[in-house]
Amino acid sequence: MTPELLIDLILSISLLLLAMVTLRQRTPGDAVIQLMIFGLLLALSWLRVQAPDLSLTEAAIGPGVTGALLLASLRRIGFHRPFPPPASLPFRAAASLGCGIVGVVLSWILLQSWDRPQGLTELAYQHLPESGSKNPITAVILNYRGYDTLLEIGVLLVAALSVYTLAAPVRGKAVKPPGAIFRLYLRMMTPLFLLVVPYMVWIGGYAPGGAFQAGALLSGLGVLTLLGPRPWPIQLRRKLLRASLALGFILFLVVAVWTWRYGDFLTYPPAEASKWILVIESSCALSIGICLTVMFAGCAGWLSEEREGFR
C-alpha cells in the first residue's frame, strides 16, 4: 500500500460518499452545499489524475459558478422547501437495479481493458511545436479540436441569450444594499481579479490556464459586482455588454473563415498560430465571463426588461 494509493483510495471513496450524501439531502439548500463540497474534492482529484488544467477549471466552475447559479436560483425556488418524495418503490427498485447492473458491467469492462496503450498522446505532443502553444491542452482545444471549442462558445452564447428571453417584464423586489465590509472586499478584489484574468489567459500558452479558467474567474468578478452597491457596470441595455457576449463566438468564426485562405476552415499557418490562439483566447475569456454573469443574473431573477436593467 503506497502512500499514493492510500491518498487515492481516501479521495475516491470520499467522492463516492459525498455523492451519496448529496443525493440524500432533504432541502435544496443542503443539496447545493454538498454539491459544492463535492466539486472542491473533485478539483483535488483532477490533480491526482494528471489534469491540472481541469483542476483549475473545476475549482472555478464547480463550486464557483455552478454553486453560484444554484444558490442564486434558490432565491426564487426556496432554500428550505423540502423535496417532494420520489417515485414509487417498484420504480425505485427497478432504477437502482438497472443502474447497478450497468455500473457493474462498465466496471468490469474498465478493469478488463485497463492496460490498453494510450491513444493519440504521441501524436499530440509530436505536433506541439507547430500548434502555436506549449501547453498541450490549449493546443488541443484551440488547434487540434478547434471546432469543438467554436461550437461550445456558440452553445454558451445560445444559453445566455435564452436566459435573456426569460427576463421578467417588471423589476422584482429590491434587494438590500450590501454593507461596508462587502464593499471593502469588492474594492480590494476587483483590481486583483482584473490582474489575474489576463494573466490566466496569457499563461495558458505554456502552463495550466487558458480562456475557460480566465472566463470563470471573470464571471466570479461579475457575480461579485452584481452583489455589490453599483451593478451599473453590467447594465442590460448597454450595447457594449451585449456586444461582448457575442464577441468571443463572432471573433472565433471570423478567424475560422479568415484562415480558410490558408487551407481548410480553421487551420492556422504554423508561424502565426500562437497569435491567432491568443486573440481567440482573449475574446473567448471575455465572452465566457459575461455570459456566465448574465446567466447568474437570470437565475437570480435580476434580469428585467425595464430600463434600469439589473435589480
Binding site: 489534469a51 488544467d53 481541469l54 477549471t57 473545476e58 466552475i61 464547480g62 494510450q118 491513444g119 493519440l120 498522446t121 499530440a124 498541450p136 491542452i137 493546443a139 488541443v140 482545444i141 487540434y144 479540436r145 469543438d148 471549442t149 461550445e152 454558451l156 475557460f212 465566457i288
Partner: peptide
C-alpha cells in the same frame, strides 16, 4: 493524453 482533457474542458462549460 491531452485530447480527453480538452473534451472534458468543453464538457464542463
Amino acid at each position: 493524453d491531452p485530447i480527453p482533457h480538452g473534451m472534458i474542458l468543453t464538457g464542463i462549460v
